[in-house]
Design a binder for these strands. Structure first.
Length: 265
DNA sequence: ATGGCGCCTACGAGGCGA
């Protein structure tokens, strides 16, 4: 049986309900992880999502910023929230499916404008967050699990994960320090970079195109900030991967597009 | 060298994204 898991930073769930309907109709993910829902739980549009065919919907949000959700076509065994960096800022949710597979959904801090933890508290927060993640996946229990880690990790670690490697080396999201921390995260948990499992490192692969420079998508000035990582035991089960680029061309789109993986379970 | 736009809150303009 094939299980489809998707991750999408939708930049406000209430602004994107139409796009969510279109994406779930066309791709029908069994588990859909969302980031930047930007809504407190009391205002979460639960019935709209249930009507898209999701039996269980988990959400962990706050007013204005951050917020994550997981939509599940079928009821799950359990769900969990982990607090990172001692801040309850709604950046993680996970579910354990009935077959034991764990799906962890992350929204890593963007890191602010200056890539220096001394000058910029937001960058220091991002570094700390990535280090905590690496420490967490280092737990030997994790290696024995069937575990998928997805989300907006806000780092494009490889040269071909950005449209201009040399130009962006000093930009937050593509600094050598952040790329090293991402490599460390993967090594700590012996995790597979699912995107690069399917698309070779020397080919451009992007999931985000900024709003600020209007023609960024037409010019393909993209970054791969969204990721799917998997524990080694899932390697033979990985069947298909897609970055659904065309959603960036929709009317009033999110600046991120969905990453989708199919797993044989 | 910088900003661009879009979304938030809440009604003017500033915070945030990356």
């Amino acid at each position: 049986m094939s299980l489809r898991i998707a991750t999408w930073n939708i930049n406000s769930i209430r602004q994107r309900l139409g796009h969510l309907k279109d994406f779930t109709d066309s791709h029908g993910p069994d588990v859909l992880c969302l980031q930047e829902t930007k809504v407190q739980d009391s205002e979460f549009p639960l019935s709209d999502l249930e009507s898209m065919g999701y039996e269980e919907v988990f959400f962990h949000g706050q007013k204005s910023y951050n917020g994550v959700a997981i939509l599940c076509k079928k009821a799950v065994q359990s769900h969990q929230k982990i607090v990172w960096c001692n801040k309850d800022d709604r950046r993680h949710l996970s579910v354990t499916l009935n077959n034991g597979l764990e799906v962890h959904n992350f929204y890593v801090p963007s890191g602010g404008p200056i890539p220096d933890p001394e000058q910029n508290d937001k960058f220091a927060h991002k570094i700390q967050f990535l280090k905590e993640m690496a420490k967490w996946v280092k737990n030997p229990d994790i290696k024995d699990k069937k575990l998928i880690l997805v989300g907006d990790l806000n780092v494009a670690p490889l040269e071909k994960d950005v449209w201009n490697h040399k130009k962006l080396l000093k930009s937050v999201g593509h600094t050598p320090l952040e790329s090293d921390l991402m490599a460390g995260l993967r090594q700590s948990g012996d995790l597979i970079d699912v995107g690069r499992h399917f698309v070779p490192d020397d080919q451009p692969l992007y999931s985000w195109w900024g709003y600020r420079y209007k023609p960024s998508f037409e010019k393909d000035y993209g970054w791969r900030l969204d990721h799917i990582l998997a524990t080694q035991s899932l390697k033979p089960a990985l069947k298909k991967f897609e970055i659904v680029r065309h959603t960036r061309g929709w009317e009033k789109p999110s600046d991120h597009v969905p990453n989708v993986v199919d797993i044989d379970v």
